[in-house]
């Protein structure tokens, strides 16, 4: 009964995917079983390629298939405007709005004293190096509008300010405590277009819910 075992294993693996319950896993497994080998294996190969070929862009830390991600390798993007995001997912969400023409820097997380994530755990040094290298006019802080995202933005403001670069923060229209990944594209487009300059005088970013 080897086949039953592998079918069972397939259903278990499918069932681990987000949004796939037991019945969907059953249906997809049966579908794959009925497909010609070549078609079914194309899925397996696509999964393998994603895991083997995709890595971090050597410039911004976004998802890349070669050395550079599609944004960094696009000469039409404005490299003078640098948008800082927590993760590659946020970069993808902002790209989906089509509202931003600059380039990105992926931090790889957010400051979190509660989870022990300190500045040295994020790609802060790489960000500072990019700004120090020159050619950057504005840094847009697009960390999530959460307590930890705000802390990260305020921290970055403090280390970027001495470099003389303009620092902005995405607008506060996003639901408080929400995340960039879950915001709708129009809302995100508004947030990035309505960004405001951030200064360390306690006036911004606006405190929420008060």
């Amino acid at each position: 009964m080897a086949e039953t075992d592998s079918l069972k294993r397939l259903k278990e693996e499918l069932g681990k995917l987000p949004g796939i319950g037991e019945r969907s896993a059953e249906r997809i497994a049966q579908h794959l079983l009925a497909l010609p080998s070549e078609e079914a294996l194309a899925l397996a190969r696509a999964i393998r390629d994603v895991k083997q070929k995709i890595r971090a862009c050597s410039r911004c830390g976004g998802l890349a298939e070669g050395d550079l991600c599609p944004v960094c390798s696009d000469s039409k993007r404005d490299a003078a405007v640098l948008c800082v995001v927590e993760g590659a997912n946020d970069m993808r969400s902002l790209e989906a709005t089509g509202a931003f023409r600059g380039v990105y820097h992926v931090l790889g997380g957010r400051l979190s004293p509660l989870e022990g994530v300190a500045p040295e755990d994020l790609s802060v040094e790489a960000l500072l190096s990019r700004v120090k290298a020159g050619g950057v006019r504005e840094v847009v802080l697009a960390t999530n509008p959460t307590a930890e995202g705000d802390a990260t933005a305020l921290f970055l403001l403090r280390v970027l300010a001495p470099l003389g670069v303009k620092v902005t923060r995405i607008a506060r229209g996003l639901p408080s405590g929400g995340t960039i990944e879950h915001a709708s594209p129009p809302m995100l487009a508004d947030a990035i277009e309505g960004r405001t300059e951030l200064r360390e005088d306690g006036a911004s970013p606006a405190a929420r819910g008060n």
Binding site: A147, R158, A207
Partner: peptide, 24 residues
Amino acid sequence: SVLPGFRGLRARLDRLLAGLGVAE
């Protein structure tokens, strides 16, 4: 439901980090 919060806590890095220290 979120009640009126701690006004000004999120306006400054040192305040926010101290607030997170309380939570910790």
